[in-house]
Design a binder for these strands. Sequence first.
DNA 1: GCAAGGTTCACCCTTTGGGGTGAACCGCTC
DNA 2: GAGCGGTTCACCCCAAAGGGTGAACCTTGC
Lengths: 210, 210
Amino acid sequence: MDAVRVALVNDYEVVARGVAEMLRTYRNRIHVVELDLNKQVGEHVDIALYDTFAATRGDRSEVRDLVSNPLVGVVVVYSWTLEPVHIESAMSNGAGGYISKGLPAAGLVSALETIRAGGKQLHLEQEDAQTVIVGDWPGREEGLSEREAEILALITQGLSNAEIAERTYLSINSIKTYIRNCYRRIGADSRTNALLWGIEHGFRPDRVRI
Amino acid sequence: MDAVRVALVNDYEVVARGVAEMLRTYRNRIHVVELDLNKQVGEHVDIALYDTFAATRGDRSEVRDLVSNPLVGVVVVYSWTLEPVHIESAMSNGAGGYISKGLPAAGLVSALETIRAGGKQLHLEQEDAQTVIVGDWPGREEGLSEREAEILALITQGLSNAEIAERTYLSINSIKTYIRNCYRRIGADSRTNALLWGIEHGFRPDRVRI
DNA sequence: GCAAGGTTCACCCTTTGGGGTGAACCGCTC
DNA sequence: GAGCGGTTCACCCCAAAGGGTGAACCTTGC
């Protein structure tokens, strides 16, 4: 059982250094191979720890690039956000794990080990953590149905009712119905308030084009 | 000219460690006295480096608490966001400096030294940096007038035209005019798109209640 | 002094959003 | 099989948003 070889992927010196330092104490279990800003991974690593930088970055394309890199074993996303949308999108882009930045150093280390061993992929909270089901969608706990959440997500991207109808292949009347129900459930009384609610509840995709 | 005594203030282990590690190389110039998560500053320090954690935190109250702490010389905000609103609000809350997290380690070190010496308070870009005037408002560089920016800020908080009119003591027609001009300038064609633009350009206050 | 640009407002009009109701269909559960 | 809840849609109606125009007033700068 040798140390997990990890490459850190992040644009910013502070973040990359922080992670490296956090792992330094555990250098017998975790070996930080590369600590590069933008640069390519040079030698084989078990895990590429992809730092999403407070959810403003973390694009699919970058994760995909890493996944397709033959030198990288598993791509693990390391993020502040625990929103199901982000987790789901990361996983569907080929990530082999998702770790919360809220974890203390020890948690990060054991999470990395577990993931390399092929165990649990999601490491979101301290230890116990009420297991997060991947089949979840944002807003579920607020009583939003899947469709309603979908519509709200599209609102959160700035689409009009007509555009939403077009994209979902639904009639504009159905869209209106969903929006009405949505508002009732989240307690919004306008599109803008719904949008803000959506943003605060993780409905925003990684990169929104306006 | 002895080392600058710095206390790091941040909730998260990764971030605090990252900064500490970044400064470790410069330990002859910067001495990290405390690296505490939430805890109080125990001994006197020149600078409390307050980490706003990607602008999701960074409330006035926390900065004020630090400012009022007799053991703290100057409170310096260390943040990713370079948006004038945030900078202004930080400074008006008593911060004695504002440093961008985009700076490399060396930049951070010299910024801290400059601030302790009573020099330039804002350290936002690499070196040169077109000096950011504190009298600025968000969206200025996009051609928004002060009024337009104000209206946009209120939109970004989810207010309706009527509510904006009420709050600004302007007629609803004027509000509409400003909004129209606003949309033209930022290239939005709907309220929701304007809202998203606003959020991406720092128009959102620290904590928005919906 | 006048052009430029910001501020303020009014009046017009069209489109969009949002609320209410009713109704059909589906699958699930008790 | 009756009921519940989600999905889908239609029709109506009203309020809000948005776009155009014109116009008054005020600075500031050439």
